[in-house]
């Protein structure tokens, strides 16, 4: 059991399970979705929304909230799953995922969805916005933090490094970056598409406080978020999360790795059952 700043006792494993379940149900609605990514990042989102971040579900624009930027907009299915679990989006809207007129489009956009703080889709935007937000929050003497999730593939984008350099320059200690290293992008393994290692060394050289953890180990993720929040140095913080695509659904996790994991129509129910079987009560 973990306690979050709201004072509630929450079981993070159960939260992560429910985020995965919500995501699978949305994937089933459309028969598609970036489900491999949603499953790999569910633990990080559970820790973000049920351990680390301050927010008010009934008031997603609450001025003192911690901001969460989803730079990798195609992970929207995962964030919706978390926002539903957090009570920011009603659970019944899950049925509308990706449909005409839905508030839950397949790529995350701020103007559509409560709790979605930026419009992603075009990769490499999130950290640049985060830099401006963190400077703005500093101007307002706000204690709020900006959590920014992005993917290892985004490390190919020059703008990401502009922002990484800038955050170091401004010593943005209110910025917590989270990079999902699932080593999979559109054309293949991220490390082969464009080598980005040694990532920790690079980020440290840019002036960041960097931790690297197994992003599917809840205890490790919690410890990393705590260390990032409590770190004394005036530096931006990065948590490099190594994750497993399809995590929580063994047959998807074992499936040939691909940016867009294929799930056949009959398999969504099987995936939900496999997830349920692994549920820790």
């Amino acid at each position: 059991m973990q306690s979050n700043p709201l004072g509630h006792k929450v079981d993070l494993a159960e939260r992560a399970y429910r985020i995965r379940r919500n995501a699978l149900k949305m994937g089933e609605v459309q028969g598609q979705g970036y489900i491999g990514q949603a499953l790999d990042i569910a633990d990080v989102l559970a820790v973000s929304y049920f351990h680390a971040m301050r927010y008010r579900p009934e008031d997603p624009a609450w001025e003192e909230r911690d901001r969460f930027l989803l730079s990798n907009g195609h992970y929207a299915i995962a964030l919706y799953a978390a926002l539903i679990e957090a009570g920011i989006i009603p659970e019944e809207e899950l049925e509308t995922y990706g449909s005409d007129g839905s508030r839950l489009p397949m790529s995350g956009m701020a103007s559509y969805t409560p709790g979605m703080e930026m419009s992603g889709g075009s990769l490499g935007l999130g950290l640049t916005i985060a830099v401006g937000m963190c400077l703005g929050l500093r101007r307002k003497s706000s204690a709020a933090r900006v959590y920014t999730l992005f993917s290892d593939g985004e490390l190919d984008e020059g703008s990401v490094w502009e922002a990484i350099m800038s955050a170091g320059h401004w010593k943005l200690d209110n910025l917590i970056g989270i990079v999902d290293v699932n080593n999979q992008q559109a054309d293949g393994p991220s490390t082969q598409v464009l080598a980005f290692e040694p990532l920790v060394d690079k980020l440290e050289a840019f002036g960041w406080f960097v931790q690297r953890v197994d992003g599917n180990d809840l205890d490790a993720v919690v410890a990393a978020f705590d260390a990032a929040r409590n770190h004394a140095a005036q530096k931006p913080r990065m948590i490099v999360c190594d994750t497993r695509m399809g995590c929580g659904v063994p047959f998807l996790e074992a499936r040939e790795k691909n940016h867009f994991i294929r799930v056949d129509a009959h398999e969504w129910q099987l995936a939900l059952e496999a997830l349920e079987a692994g549920r820790t009560q």
Binding site: L127, T128, G136, K140, E162
Partner: peptide
Amino acid sequence: AEQLLMGAAAGMAHE
């Protein structure tokens, strides 16, 4: 860094 400039300006406007 003009891309950063525009993204950061957006972030400022958000705040």
